[in-house]
Design a protein around this nucleic acid. Structure first.
Lengths: 103, 103
RNA sequence: CGACACCUCCUCGC
DNA sequence: GCGAGGAGGTGTCG
């Protein structure tokens, strides 16, 4: 189970923002980050898991941690919508993802 | 024009606090002060001008100096709210008060 | 309206 | 460097 911890922020909102993610895979920690001018808090919160998911092998068993309800329910709904549209293999991969808030 | 300089502080916040005010009326300086256990910085910042205003004649032309934005905007809003409720004479007195930050 | 984030500002301190 | 007491707003969803 690969664990991904993500966060995003944005000075001023809208303003200059950044995101970061820590990918923990079998005791190996990978840190990625990025920044963007004139963006929003939710765009940054969302970009973090998106960038992280692109770094891991397809079909991996993944758990994502975010403090953003926007991201959490957002991804949940996307899966729900894509499920209707039947994205086939992509769905099967995404269904392995577990989203958690930070408690 | 009566000038009132106020300040409040609080050790620990919340903690034990105090307030002070200097009332300058026609070259006469009056100093008042007080203290309170288990209070907050903003309560003390606010108590200072309240106590001072009770010491001066009603209808006086007053200028208050505070370093607290909480107090400054707080009083401004009170005047605005009381204005809606139509406090009549009280409003006319209060409208003479000028609030200044310390620059 | 509610929830979760993201801040901005001013004070008070430790 | 850290936190608390306060008021003001936006980004997004249901």
């Amino acid at each position: 189970m690969i664990k991904i911890y993500t966060d995003g922020s944005c000075l001023g909102n809208p303003g200059n923002g950044g995101w970061a993610a820590i990918i923990i895979d079998d005791k190996k920690k990978t840190k990625i980050k990025g920044s963007k001018k004139d963006t929003t808090n939710n765009q940054m919160e969302l970009l973090a898991p998106i960038k992280a998911l692109k770094k891991i092998p397809k079909g991996s068993n993944v758990q994502i941690f975010t403090d953003s309800k926007y991201v959490k329910s957002g991804i949940t709904e996307w899966i729900h919508n894509w499920k209707k549209m039947d994205g086939k293999q992509l769905i099967n991969d995404l269904l392995k993802i577990k989203i958690s808030g930070l408690n």
